[in-house]
């Protein structure tokens, strides 16, 4: 505790604070989390390949490849042992691909992966030390830098541009129904087209204990309640906007979560509220990513205020 109160607080806090047991991650090695995460993403990958064909493959291969190469290059530069084999770079690259449209220009995909690994992860000290989810950092950078290139949506099985559910909703046009969304025919970035597959993968992660259920539950709950209070259809907003991708794979990233169970619940709720506010009032297609980035930034604060006081105290 004395260490945590010293000047080195901030991003290093995660490694310095000693919280009362049980430590959730203690028994699970990084390798197993990574392998399980990649495996749980496979249904989504296959589904997207079926929907978008080689274009989706191109985005995924480029994102993963660039992430691996960047990781290797930065590790070499930092003179550290090469950790690329732990696979975290693959996960980051793959998740980044899920946040992009299948039409994203190749160079933008590569740039995003480089930013994600170099600026989102390695500058903070590499695997496990990043306060922000690396894929989100890459995606937000791209979203702010190249909005026009990223907001072009192509329908599945065709080369036709479609309006994303958000655009339809903003324009007041007829909205795609639940069936269309579940079947993956309406969406914006790739993750939005793969609702069922990602939900499946996410549930596996929760059952295996790699993602704390409190984060997705808090997030879903907050989005539903927020939208319902505004007279919106809560289910519809849960199905669109990539909420499922965000809940399990972006917000649910254990590295960037608060360390206490309560903290994780509050974190999830915070992401849901920020998402609702940005989506409803800002009508921004990147609402999910901004929401998670914001809440990632608040994690040290949540750790400080929602810390279990002492061993055995109610947490």
């Amino acid at each position: 505790m004395a260490v945590a109160k010293s000047k080195g607080e901030g991003i290093y806090q995660l490694t310095l604070i000693s919280s009362p047991p049980p430590h959730i991650h203690a028994a699970i090695s990084v390798d197993r989390i990574v392998h399980m995460t990649i495996a749980s993403l496979l249904p989504g990958v296959i589904w997207l390949l079926y929907l978008f064909g080689w274009q989706a493959l191109r985005v995924m291969v480029l994102a993963v490849g660039a992430a691996i190469l960047t990781e290797m290059a930065v590790m070499k530069l930092r003179g550290k042992e090469n950790t690329v084999y732990d696979g975290t770079a693959v996960v980051t690259g793959l998740i980044l691909a899920f946040t992009l449209p299948p039409t994203a220009p190749s160079w933008i995909v590569v740039l995003g992966a480089v930013i994600a690994i170099a600026l989102g992860k390695q500058v903070f000290g590499g695997t496990g030390c990043n306060p922000f989810n690396p894929a989100i950092v890459g995606r937000v950078f791209l979203g702010v830098a190249f909005p026009t290139q990223l907001n072009v949506w192509i329908g599945p099985h065709s080369s036709e541009t479609i309006a994303s559910p958000l655009e339809l909703w903003v324009a007041g046009e007829a909205l795609p129904d639940y069936g269309e969304i579940l079947a993956g025919t309406a969406g914006s970035f790739m993750g939005e087209f793969a609702f069922v597959a990602l939900l499946l993968g996410g549930l596996i992660l929760i059952l295996r204990g790699y993602v704390d259920w409190r984060v997705p539950v808090g997030l879903f709950g907050a989005v539903a309640v927020f939208m319902a209070c505004l007279g919106q259809d809560p289910l519809w907003h849960l199905l669109t906007g990539g909420v499922v991708l965000g809940a399990f794979y972006l917000a649910g990233d254990p590295v960037t979560n608060p360390i206490t169970p309560w903290g994780r619940l509050v974190f999830g709720i915070g992401v849901g509220l920020c998402f609702g506010i940005i989506r409803y009032y800002g009508q921004d297609p990147d609402a999910l990513f901004f929401a998670i980035l914001l809440m990632n930034g608040l994690v040290p604060l949540l750790n400080r205020f929602l810390r279990s006081r002492r061993r055995g105290a109610a947490a």
Binding site: G155, I162, A163, E167, E173, A174
Partner: peptide, 8 residues
Amino acid sequence: DGITAATI
């Protein structure tokens, strides 16, 4: 053939 998102 209709136009996507412009059925009406």
